[in-house]
Nucleic acid binder design. Sequence first.
DNA 1: CCGGAAACTTACCGGCGTACAGTTCGAGTC
DNA 2: GACTCGAACTGTACGCCGGTAAGTTTCCGG
Lengths: 209, 209
Amino acid sequence: MADGYHHGNLRAAVLERAAEVIEREGPYSFSLRSLAADLGVSHTAPRHHFGSREGVLNALAVEGFRDLAARLRADREAGGGFLEAGVEYVRFATDRPAHFQVMFAPTLLGEGDEELEAAREAAFAELQGGVRSLAEEGRPVEDGAAAVVAGWAIVHGIATLALTGNLDRSGVRRLFEDTDLLTITRRSAGLLFGPVSGPSGGVPGTGSG
Amino acid sequence: MADGYHHGNLRAAVLERAAEVIEREGPYSFSLRSLAADLGVSHTAPRHHFGSREGVLNALAVEGFRDLAARLRADREAGGGFLEAGVEYVRFATDRPAHFQVMFAPTLLGEGDEELEAAREAAFAELQGGVRSLAEEGRPVEDGAAAVVAGWAIVHGIATLALTGNLDRSGVRRLFEDTDLLTITRRSAGLLFGPVSGPSGGVPGTGSG
DNA sequence: CCGGAAACTTACCGGCGTACAGTTCGAGTC
DNA sequence: GACTCGAACTGTACGCCGGTAAGTTTCCGG
């Protein structure tokens, strides 16, 4: 494969390295040229596989949406329930921070990429399906639409704040001492759709007056 | 002031235009050179006021943190309660989307800027103060640390998802028909720290969709 | 052995951020 | 009114960047 002229596996190598760079320095300083130089190919080589810089980011987003959808699906099939799906969402964000950033930053991506649209829709379908399963958990969902937004927003918010370092920077993280981020997620999201047991663990204000 | 050579108010003009560009095209395509050309000055003129491209973004972030802190403070002094503080957070994000983006994207900003650190800390202090005021609303807060994270995350998540267009793109927005984003915020965050059934800040008629 | 397609190269363009050495202008000073 | 000084702004130059075009190398099916 790698014969000195043909890299042999350039597409995968570019995606992997791009994710590393973006994770370390953010999407702004990610450059095709320095990436290509690192991989020992000319700066136009990646263009053959991705078309453009935007194409690389699109491909990362596709990877990300597919992985996220697969994780949510697996979680649902394992009967993890909604809370664990939310935890999985945050776990995905911390496992693949570069993908997560790119997926939700539309100004980095191009429009009209069918592969991307399909991957995104599939992931979003899993997301909403997860929230709808709340009803099947025997929990009363009075305002279903609000529950979808609240569930998504709380895990997306935790993921975003953690990834941007603002949880640490704000001192909020210190309130938890050494607690793991996923545990923090469970406790926080649990306030919304808390563990059924325990009178105070559920949604405040719904049970008592 | 503006004598053909000296712009007279370049600093403010740059910040205003930068916010417009970032709001429209995101922080990644924002360029000092095109900005300067738009304002009719040489491309090195902004450097005198901001030092670098990063300096412009830092200045935007400072503006943003100060505005956010002022809004939260005003809201607290008006006795709005926590839920309304959260709504104000989302309102800020939609009012000043460029500032919001830059404030929470540390890879766009420099480190060690004292003005920025001070503005950020002040805003974060207001945020945490708002959540602590929950106790004063007569609501039992069993896991205070989790409540802080949950409250911040849910409004930050809504703001982020809305600003990146993912609320619309995912179809979630459609569940609410023509409902205003701030109302969506009230209903969703209300699931966490539900509307006080008393007179203080409750939003009547937001249940059941 | 051959021809086409895929993978990759070199050469080039304009735009970008930044550095540095000037230039213009208002305001204060004698 | 000339002199100075600092703030604001200009012009030029450098290297990196993404994108384009034309050419080269290698693989592979016939």
